[in-house]
Design a protein around this nucleic acid. Structure first.
Lengths: 356, 356
DNA sequence: CTGAAAGCGCTTACAG
DNA sequence: CTGAAAGCGCTTACAG
């Protein structure tokens, strides 16, 4: 088990010798390629196990001209924000990569990306076979990735015709607002920021669809949005102030994510507005903090690990399939949309005075 | 810039041809090794730049028998907890690795580690030249790492005589308690969990030292500790209840970290105990949530990125220096201790009724 | 079905 | 100071 100093690493040569076959036969047997008799294969596999043989990645990489790595890129501020959304996405990707016997190289880039300066090293060195990009990033970065010619899959973000794996934001938002409607609410506000973000835009669409499907007018004054900026807790606090100042005050609010929802909750507490009695609040994402807030937050759960898993699987398909398929037929990129799940907790309740 | 399909990757052969030298000379010039004339070196470097040459890591790895990678291991629950402490440590290590032209491979392990089953893949495949371990991990894992013979540096944790980079927990705790003493507090409680954790134990030491240096007795009933478990927000809430029940009630509390401090704050709010008027609370770490809580949290700042940076630099020394030094003289491992910084915010105040 | 040989792109003694 | 050659550990045509 332990590699004592001096116990040279085993090579395929050792395995071949041990199994009494040529190196090439050992390679074939080990990789399950070509024609190798049952008996020989078994002998080789046993020899490998007996010698505790582990192939050296570098040697294979040199001949196959593949690196065995995939890059995972996200903005540093997304990686270190207090609720670990993309961290979980990363873990999902890493888990799936393990199944494909690939390593994931993580790189963070700043929000304000400058191509030459901030390029991930694995891009410059071409030390990956494909790239996952999580969340919103600067267009300049995506342009650089596209120019590299490497296969890429976006996660939780969309851009042009790049392959992506996203959450079904519209359906999720709709289920959230339907939940509020079902509780008798009619005056339902929307709180959000970064409205150009595709996910945010889709959630707003879902909000509107739910209202119109219920025959309710869409009142623009109920839509509270900071056009720029990020949908974080601070933004939630600020928009919460505007929400509470509305006349008449909405009885419920759909927030574009949990962070803003928690911010609105902060503001409600500050003004002694009881949640959920006087104001129902619903978020989106189901981050850890949604369970521990007081009251706990009703929200729309996103399966974060699964986002990463599916993205890596998709990327593997793009990487592996490239040579095999490109000549046979044209492959269209497809978008993958992950369903969400409504999680009802204690921040939403039947509208005061409403009787079913 | 863009790698158009068909524009084969440049190799050292291309560079040598372009510069009119032998491959070996090109290699020497590129790596700044051996004797190469000024003029030749310049010609090679220019040729490389002109051709946009990037060495292929796999080829070098094959001959040097180094992987160019370092492993970064931490517990999954530490990675995904809501405040990104180790995420920042990782970023610091990754940043420093870039300077050393190395890649960082991240692996998470479960709290309950089972050697065969949960071993990081890069350990099994020996695809790293050294390992960083962040935070507390199962002894079984450390045993496995030691058995591998790979150089290792622990971060924010200590075990036997393994090299480590830690925070100066004792001095930090002492500065925290000194701060409270300076505000006139005498009855100061300690809140913590996982008391066997070296960092936790050191913080308790610091607490005791500060009290005894001030000539105050150390009252065991003031030390509130959950022996097992993790020092998280939930624990803080629970111990907060015990704290408020003490007779007479302490006027200040030093919490072993920010998470427990925020938990105590939750409980204080629940019982309408005004912070800092009736109770001063101080934490440790300075996580993001310490700035945004109401009131904001006085705490002891830990330089998280720097922990990672220093650890990687230390590891690089162990990896690179191994062959060069081992025969010449014995090198002792040294511990690296990072100073902290007291950050005074709004959760601590002069003791009620105390006059300077 | 199996073996001998070439070659991936580098680095490193070794001659000169 | 520079070049020719060997070799790192694999995979992959190509013979047989």
């Amino acid at each position: 088990m332990a590699k004592r100093p001096g116990s040279r690493r085993r090579t395929i040569k050792d395995v071949a010798a041990e199994a009494n076959v040529a190196i090439s036969t050992a390679s074939l047997a080990l990789n399950g390629k070509g024609y190798v008799s049952q008996d020989t294969r078994k002998r080789v596999l046993e020899a490998a196990k007996r010698l505790d043989y582990v192939p050296q990645p570098a040697a294979r990489q040199l001949v196959t001209q593949e690196t065995g790595n995939v890059g995972f890129v996200l903005r540093a501020d997304h990686f270190t924000r207090s609720e670990p959304f993309y961290t979980r996405v990363f873990l999902g990707a890493e888990f799936e990569a393990e199944q494909h016997d690939r390593y994931v190289l993580l790189a963070t880039i700043p929000e304000q990306y400058v191509p030459g300066e901030h390029s991930p090293r694995f891009l410059r060195q071409r030390n990956v076979d494909g790239i996952l990009v999580a969340g919103k990033v600067a267009p300049a970065f995506l342009a650089e990735v596209e120019a590299s010619g490497l296969p890429v899959v976006l996660i939780d973000f969309e851009k042009d015709h790049l392959p992506n794996v996203v959450v079904d934001n519209q359906a999720g938002a709709r289920s959230a607002v339907d939940h509020l409607l079902g509780l008798g609410h009619q005056r339902i506000s929307f709180v959000g920021a970064d409205m150009e973000h595709p996910a945010v835009a889709s959630r707003l669409d879902g909000y509107r669809l739910a209202l119109s499907a219920a025959g309710l007018p869409s009142d623009p004054s109920l839509i509270l949005a900071k056009s720029g900026g990020n949908p974080d807790r601070e933004t939630g606090k600020q928009l919460g102030e505007r929400l509470l100042a509305l006349e008449p005050r909405p009885t419920a609010v759909f927030c574009v994510n949990d962070a803003t929802a928690l911010g609105v909750l902060d503001t409600a507490k500050k003004h002694d507005v009881s949640v959920p009695r006087s104001l129902s609040i619903i978020g989106f994402d189901d981050v850890t903090g949604a369970q521990t807030s007081i009251p706990s937050l009703t929200t729309v759960r996103v399966y974060k690990e699964q986002l990463g898993e599916l993205a890596l699987r998709y990327l593997a398909e793009l990487m592996g399939g490239a040579e095999q398929h490109s000549d046979r037929y044209q492959r269209g990129f497809h978008d993958i949309k992950l369903p969400t799940e409504l999680v009802v907790r204690n921040s939403t309740a039947r509208r005061e005075g409403d009787h079913e």
